Amino acid sequence: MPDQRLQSRLYQDDLSYYAALPIDWSRLNGKTIAISGATGMIGTFLIDVLMRRNAETDFQCDVIAIGRSAERIRARFPYADDGHFHAVQMDVSVPGACPDMPADIVVHLASTTHPRAYATEPVATITSNVIGLKNLLDYVCRSDAAHRGDGIDFVFASSVEVYGQNRGDTERFDERYCGYIDANTLRAGYPEAKRLGESLCQAYREQYGVRPVMPRIARTYGPTLHTDDSKALSQFMHRGLAGEDIILKSEGAQRYSYAYVGDTVSGLLYCMVQGKVGEAYNIADSGSDCRLRDLAALVAECCGVKVRFELPDEVEAKGYSKATLALMDGGKLAGLGWKAKYSIRQGIERTLRAMRGI
């Protein structure tokens, strides 16, 4: 992520806001939290929030940042001299992989999360969510966290995609809904792996006493997105900031739930601190529901460019979701006190400004 984003006043203000959320931070004080996918869009924001909490309050939380590249971790995070920050180079999908340091809470965020990768790295898409998850569940067991206290000790970042395609019998997915997924397709690897991952969490809960929670994440965006992210909204913003027209590779009638990365991270924290063991929670707010073509138009308006329509190439088409209506019901998480800070327009405008270094 370019330095101008890290230095952006808007980004820094967001870190302070989310580090002061009205949750019971005492449940995390003095704990060691291991986070896989540390350099991903959500992982980087979560780590920055925890480290900001350490810096601005009397908060003593150790963070273990797990990623495939120690060099990338060091380049991303300015905490090399901070005793609360620990970088661990590890590919979680390698069978038996496990950090040396024990952790009280493990947050599994490592996952392939964009269409081109689903098509070009289909095996890693599955293994990071199954083998990687098993490794980290074993890790929390070996850390003895599974045998202490009664709070959440494992957070598995699930996805809206576990719901599959809307069967036409609901407008919004609540946590009990189960839609259709054609398992005999390449694209099914991601949602099926997330479904199996949730089941694996429940199995470890029953057999080994792990205390998991499964936040189901909406389509997330924000200033921590990567330049190689092939999700439609990410590409809209990269092109718009470069002064290029937005390319829409469908009619844009798809209607999805979106979330600003800070609101996704706050949802994770609410699940971690106030969620119920074994439960799934949608991280979504109706103020960020949007049709894809309206999203393209919004980015184009903010960047002063136009929207053009093109057919996707063969690789892109393989990675696209078939779901055309995937709106999430966030009422269960709202019942814990969570609420989104930004609507879709506010979040997009803020992201684009932060990416410009404002």
Score class of each variant (00 low, 15 high):
T32L: 11
R219V: 13
I358W: 03
N54E: 07
R74L: 03
A259Y: 01
R142Y: 05
S158Y: 13
H238R: 12
N135P: 11
C201P: 11
V123A: 15
N135G: 08
H226F: 04
G331I: 06
A188G: 10
S26W: 02
G83E: 13
A75T: 00
S158H: 13
R239Q: 14
D294K: 08
P22I: 07
A117G: 02
L21V: 03
F85K: 10
R116A: 10
L325I: 04
G132A: 02
D229P: 10
D91N: 15
V261F: 05
V265C: 14
D182P: 02
K339L: 06
L15D: 10
R148G: 06
F59W: 04
G252L: 04
S158E: 13
D104C: 11
V155I: 14
R116D: 09
A38I: 07
V155F: 10
G287C: 10
R216I: 05
M41G: 07
V130S: 06
C290Y: 07
L200G: 03
D91F: 01
Y163A: 02
R187G: 08
D153K: 09
E316K: 05
L311Q: 14
A97V: 00
D294M: 04
C141Q: 05
Y190H: 14
R350K: 15
A20N: 15
A117C: 09
A38Q: 09
